[in-house]
């Protein structure tokens, strides 16, 4: 089914459409959320909040404002980051600032189960540190271009082109 039709049905509260979209994006959202909170129980809790929020606010999505993936990615990132700012989370968790998504991939053993695990691992090993940081900030953490340039101490334009090159490289690995 065409993505546009699926989203339109989802906005009309079609439960089957919701399940299809969940199947398409849930692993991705969970990866993003888990990368931020680094706790399976909390990630599971946030996952539920995210998709329930998406269902309840389905009408607020519009294709003109961006991709559906980007819309739900924003909800997931914000929910996860909100969680990390809560008092209870701060008290119980170590400082996560120094961690990047690649840590999960490099330390994971269960990753071998993933279909493109080998490709991703290859990518991670080949990817320059600058790519990892840019991708981490822009996609996993939801930084703006300006925020990223400040974080990485780089001109805004450089962020844009470097990211372009990094994603190009990613595509050659994961999409063949």
């Amino acid at each position: 089914m065409q993505l546009e039709v699926l989203i339109s049905k989802f906005q009309q509260k079609d439960e089957k459409a919701f399940e299809s979209l969940y199947a398409m994006y849930s692993d991705s959202m969970h990866g993003v959320i888990y990368n931020i909170v680094r706790d399976h129980d909390i990630a599971e809790e946030i996952m539920q909040d995210v998709f329930i929020k998406a269902w309840n606010n389905a009408g607020s999505y519009s294709a003109e404002k961006g991709r559906f993936f980007t819309w739900i990615l924003n909800i997931a990132r914000n929910a996860a980051i909100d969680k990390t700012r809560s008092k209870a989370f701060k008290n119980s968790k170590k400082n996560l600032d120094a961690e990047y998504f690649v840590d999960i991939l490099q330390t994971s053993e269960s990753l071998d189960d993933q279909t493109d695990a080998i490709g991703i691992k290859k990518f991670v090993s080949k990817l320059a540190k600058k790519c990892i940081k840019v991708i981490e900030l822009l996609y996993f953490k939801g930084y703006t271009q300006l925020e990223a340039s400040e974080e990485l101490d780089m001109p805004i334009g450089t962020i844009k082109t470097r990211n372009r090159n990094c994603i190009k490289e990613l595509r050659t690995i994961v999409l063949e």
């Binding site: 692993d27 991705s28 990866g31 991709r67 993936f69 998504f101 991939l105 695990a117 996609y139």
Partner: peptide
Amino acid sequence: EIEAAIIKLTASTSQQ
């Protein structure tokens, strides 16, 4: 294609 690559990358960090 960009979206598909990002989805694959982020999904790979979901361990379950």
